[in-house]
């Protein structure tokens, strides 16, 4: 908004240059382009190994593209933390730049938490902030160029690609001729939200913390929600119904984990598949519009994940009566 006209002109030239470069690289435009074929990447659910697997008691461990992205997100969060804490230590009351944006976001979230959680705001808000920040940054790594498209080529049986050498260190893939090409592409960086481990871990932590807040606020009373034997004998018919509802509550707690995990995973994974498809159909320019959409979706999903976790935590602290079993549908 505060750009001078000169900067605007500069940005326009960059866009035009990128457009021309795209035309040059990916099309045979007037016979002068390189006409590098744009390949629809193979869609693989599990994250791909970059190093040789190490055996651990819990399963194989290896460095994967999603871990790189996770490290990147961690670094960004640490940078934001350093920026904010040093700025606040200096006694600033108004933050500027990126940390100013983070501060504005968190202030908004804090207001919402205060409206929902009341006196538990102080305990619940850090979780809301953590989940929203990490998920948002993880989702937005999708925007960076090269993510999920630059990777290690591994020759293996059943691979999807053939390879065309461009330079000493640079190869591009092209579609395999037959059913079995020779190579796999293992991206160096893959959006961490497309790894179910990340989303399931988030969902598990969120649901465990929901139970934690329930127990902390109501003590053992909290579990009467699940094991509703209080009215079983006093009101025969409704008691049985209450007991059944209690059992359903247990199921809903597990379904919370699944819905949390798969909502985020599905949105972001589908988004990256969408980008692949659009990019392979129209190599130039069309993808930009979908990048915009994915930017929006990434922010919304991060916000929704955090907001739902916060709402469930606040509900757990408030005890019976307020539950409408949204979690069962979510």
């Amino acid at each position: 908004m505060t750009e001078t006209p000169k900067q605007k002109v500069w940005g326009r030239w960059v866009v035009l240059a990128a457009f021309v470069l795209g035309l040059f690289l990916f099309t045979g435009f007037f016979g002068i382009g390189l006409a590098i074929p744009v390949v629809m990447p193979a869609v693989v659910l599990p994250t791909e190994p970059l190093t040789a697997p190490i055996s651990t008691p819990f399963g194989e461990f290896f460095l994967s593209g999603t871990l790189v992205a996770l490290l990147f997100a961690d670094l960004v969060i640490i940078a934001i933390a350093i920026g904010i804490s040093s700025a606040v230590k200096k006694g600033k009351l108004i933050l500027t730049g990126i940390i100013g944006g983070v501060e504005a976001l968190l202030e908004m979230l804090h207001g919402m938490t205060e409206g929902t959680a009341g006196k538990w705001t102080k305990q619940i808000f850090p979780w809301f902030a953590t989940i929203t920040l990490i998920v948002m940054i993880a989702n937005w790594t999708e925007m960076l160029p090269g993510v999920e498209t630059i990777g290690k080529l591994v020759k293996e049986e059943g691979g999807h690609y053939a390879v065309q050498a461009v330079g000493p260190f640079l190869n591009v893939v092209e579609p395999a001729e037959g059913e079995h090409g020779g190579y796999h592409l293992f991206p160096y960086v893959r959006v961490v939200s497309t790894d179910l481990n990340f989303t399931v871990a988030l969902a598990l932590v969120a649901v465990v913390m929901i139970q934690y807040f329930g127990v902390k606020s109501q003590g053992a009373n909290y579990f009467s929600k699940f094991w509703a034997t209080g009215t079983l004998f006093s009101k025969p018919i409704f008691g049985v119904i209450d007991f059944g509802v209690g059992l359903l509550e247990i199921v809903s707690e597990f379904s919370k984990v699944l819905s949390f995990a798969f909502r985020l995973f599905g949105n972001i994974f589908a988004g990256s598949v969408l980008l692949f498809v659009i990019g392979s159909l129209v190599p130039v320019f069309a993808q930009s519009i979908f990048y915009l959409l994915e930017f929006f979706v990434g922010a919304i999903q991060a916000f929704v994940f955090g907001l739902l976790a916060m709402t469930f935590m606040a509900q757990a602290t408030q005890g019976h009566g307020g539950e409408h079993h949204e979690e069962a549908h979510a």
């Binding site: 651990t56 819990f58 399963g59 994967s64 179910l196 481990n197 399931v200 871990a201 598990l204």
Partner: peptide
């Protein structure tokens, strides 16, 4: 699905 104890 790629869910793996060590990653988790």
């Amino acid at each position: 699905l790629g869910i793996n104890g060590s990653f988790l």
